[in-house]
Design a binder for these strands. Structure first.
Length: 271
DNA sequence: AATGCATGCGCAG
DNA sequence: TGCGCCTGCATTA
């Protein structure tokens, strides 16, 4: 689930469901966050903010923030009131008269101060989904680095919010060999990657899934049988190992890169 | 029932 | 580079 688009979407969804000025019932059935929940409960949610894969919730009359990071398998479930009895893995539940939302399995769910929140912003790279993002900051690091562009795109200090799916897909869309060192990436190439990330991730926020296949390459447009990728979006290479490339028909390859699975088409990605 | 795997990340060495 | 951590689901036995 969680790449940056998911988190920005969650910020919107938390806001629209709970930041209406009415008090929110905050609980932590699983227990770990119970003390903090008790401090915040019965106050209204004020704002939600997202930077990369980090989500922040702020409650009225409090300068503290709930800092949430979903990690690899954190999940958030929204539903209408009345909320069902929580299962014992629910780390954080918000509930009001109309809705509830449950958080399970996050790497992080902690109450932090405003300076601590700022420190997180400071250590994250520009986020293609934030209006204040400066892509040149990312390029300054990339253009100095001998690390592969595939690894750099996953480094949250370089770019915030890109995960394994967007990494693989944007490199495919730009025909870029994932193993090229960052310092070989030209300003024009980085500009194209960044522009593509902005477009793809905005679309991801809107649809709440990752679709990267251009209209002219859909199975219908290519005269191929319809296809459903098993993670809920239409993609070119992510988890399509040994399947035919939508464009050249060659086999999609996979390899370990920095403890993650990399997917790419060696025929198309030669730039 | 047990195992493996995942769109993540921080830490030790 | 490898390990642990958070959870749920699919696959294997």
């Amino acid at each position: 689930m969680p790449e940056g688009h998911t988190i920005h979407r969650l910020a919107k969804d938390y806001t629209s469901a709970f930041a209406d000025g009415t008090p929110v019932h905050v609980t932590s059935p699983q227990g770990t966050f119970a003390a903090a929940a008790a401090l915040l409960t019965h106050t209204p949610l004020h704002t939600a903010d997202a930077h990369g894969k980090h989500l922040f919730l702020n409650f009225a009359d409090s300068d503290a923030w709930i800092h949430i990071h979903l990690g690899l398998f954190g999940k958030v479930t929204f539903g209408p009131a009345p909320a069902p009895p929580p299962t014992d893995t629910v780390r954080l539940r918000l509930a009001n008269d109309t809705a509830y939302v449950d958080l399970r399995g996050p790497t992080t769910c902690a109450l932090i101060t405003a300076p601590e929140k700022q420190a997180i912003h400071d250590r994250l790279g520009p986020d293609p989904l934030r209006p204040d993002a400066d892509p040149h900051r990312a390029y300054a690091r990339i253009s100095r680095s001998r690390t592969t562009i595939a690894a750099l795109l996953m480094d949250q200090k370089v770019v915030a919010g890109v995960g394994n799916v967007y990494r693989a897909e944007v490199l495919f869309r730009r025909n870029i060999d994932p193993y090229r060192p960052g310092k070989g990436i030209t300003p024009a190439e980085w500009d194209a990657i960044w522009t593509d990330l902005v477009e793809l991730m905005r679309e991801g926020v809107r649809t709440n899934r990752i679709d990267t296949v251009r209209p002219e390459h859909t199975p219908e447009a290519m005269g191929r049988p319809p296809r459903v990728d098993d993670h809920g979006g239409e993609v070119y290479v992510y988890r399509r190992t040994h399947q035919p490339c939508h464009i050249c028909g060659g086999e999609i390859r996979t390899a370990d890169l920095a403890a993650r699975n990399l997917f790419w088409c060696p025929t198309c990605q030669t730039q």
